[in-house]
């Protein structure tokens, strides 16, 4: 499993710098999806900085981020945790057969009021 995922690539792609983190936990304090996550925003930052990403890529937590950018906005150090989570998730779904959402899943999710925007956004987030 070694080097299956490149941590340097993930950090470079994200445009964020996890070393700026001072471990205050404000990202996790502000995250609206905290309870849905096994690993929380501050853990993403810390584990990516340590290169310890095996557990993260296997966890559904990467799909729980709402991309609401509250953590990015409120981080006192400008770390931008959501960008790191995004970059990590791309690392996973770009691999063959790793799409989290497929067109076959959609019919069961539809209802009359659902805006197109929801489906487009979900595909953008979950699928390559």
């Amino acid at each position: 499993m070694t080097n299956k995922y490149s941590v340097e690539e993930i950090i470079k792609r994200s445009g964020a710098n996890p070393l700026k983190c001072m471990k205050c936990g404000k990202c996790s304090a502000t995250c609206p999806a905290y309870d849905e996550m096994e690993y929380h925003p501050h853990q993403f930052v810390s584990m990516i900085a340590d290169g310890d990403i095996e557990a993260l890529v296997k966890s559904d937590s990467i799909y729980r981020c709402l991309s609401c950018f509250a953590c990015v906005e409120r981080c006192p150090r400008g770390v931008e945790p959501a960008k790191l989570i995004e970059a990590l998730k791309l690392e996973v779904i770009r691999k063959k057969g790793q799409n989290y959402l497929t067109p076959n899943d959609i019919p069961n999710m539809l209802n009359e009021d659902l805006p197109q925007q929801a489906i487009v956004s979900a595909f953008r987030k979950y699928t390559k």
Partner: peptide, 25 residues
């Protein structure tokens, strides 16, 4: 940990924060 959001509601201030030692919000 840090406080992420304070929401005034009625008579109380709802404080949402992180407890890093216990890994809890």
């Amino acid at each position: 940990g840090m406080v992420g959001k304070v929401t005034p509601e009625g008579e109380v201030l709802k404080v949402q924060g992180s407890d890093l030692i216990n890994n809890k919000q």
